[in-house]
């Protein structure tokens, strides 16, 4: 590794510490990475769902729905994710347990995975709403009017016209959201969910090799980002097929 020279004490021990079998901590890091990716996927999917509905509501909904959505996106985008995660995490689990108690059921323990997905998905939904709203507005509106003139129901129109037509406009924003989702999973370390950053911290604390483990986790995150970028590039080429080439911003 390149940083071996900054690490005077433990050059030979580095690989031992990082090995994936029990004396090393590599397995823990990989398990944390798997957890992080799981949450990122779930949160991104949930965010897409909320975002699609939100964008639809913001564009075509009634005045009340529009105002409520405006409040949702404004507040979520103005308050730090860390604070939102804490608020939603505690308030959400508390609320569910109180409802269950009122209905006569025993309180449940909500798994960190589900809570993480729901909380991050809620945050992602706000950003997704704005991204998708912009993308739908970028579709030539004549296409939507033509679809209506053909008598398509809103569901069919969304599936056949709006979603495919907006995809190339939405992809850069969605790619950004995906990268934010992978990085925001690190915030769940603060509420004690054992994703990559918290696993790293525990490994580093146990072995005292702080620099080594944080660098290793950084490399893992970077690999996720770079491979995502490669895949997103391919998807973008696919989604833009038949369209004029991308203009350099």
């Amino acid at each position: 590794m390149a940083d071996a020279s900054i690490f005077p004490a433990a050059i030979s021990g580095m690989f031992e510490l990082l090995s994936p079998v029990p004396p090393g901590w590599g397995g823990n890091l990989l398990r944390g990475l798997a957890n992080s990716l799981q949450i990122a996927f779930g949160a991104f999917g949930l965010g897409l769902l909320i975002g699609t509905l939100g964008a639809y509501g913001k564009l075509y909904g009634g005045p009340v729905i529009r105002d409520i959505l405006a409040i949702y996106t404004t507040i979520v985008r103005a308050v730090p994710e860390l604070v939102l995660i804490l608020l939603l995490y505690y308030a959400g689990t508390d609320l569910i347990n109180r409802v269950l108690e009122a209905m006569g059921y025993a309180p449940v323990n909500i798994s960190g995975l589900v809570a993480g997905i729901v909380v991050l998905g809620f945050v992602q939904g706000a950003y997704g709403t704005e991204v998708l709203r912009g993308a739908i507005k970028a579709i030539p509106q004549g296409e939507i009017e033509a679809a209506r003139a053909y008598g398509m129901s809103p569901g069919v129109m969304m599936r056949r016209i709006i979603l495919p037509a907006m995809l190339p406009h939405a992809l850069p924003g969605l790619a950004n959201l995906w990268l934010i989702a992978t990085k925001d999973t690190a915030l769940l370390a603060v509420v004690g969910f054992s994703e990559l950053t918290l696993e790293t911290r525990q490994a580093a604390g146990a072995t005292k090799a702080y620099f080594l483990f944080y660098m290793a986790a950084g490399v893992l995150y970077l690999l996720v980002t770079l491979s995502s970028n490669a895949i997103i590039g391919r998807v973008e080429i696919w989604a833009r097929r038949g369209m004029p080439s991308i203009r350099e911003a």
């Binding site: 990268l179 990085k183 925001d184 950053t197 660098m215 950084g218 970077l222 980002t225």
Partner: peptide, 26 residues
């Protein structure tokens, strides 16, 4: 820019504080 944008800020913060901070006293 790629490295900064590709890793979580929380990790960067901990890398600097715990990582670099633990190297300095040596």
């Amino acid at each position: 820019c790629t490295i900064i944008r590709g890793t979580p800020l929380l990790l960067q913060l901990w890398l600097l504080y715990y990582g670099l901070g633990s190297l300095f006293p040596q």
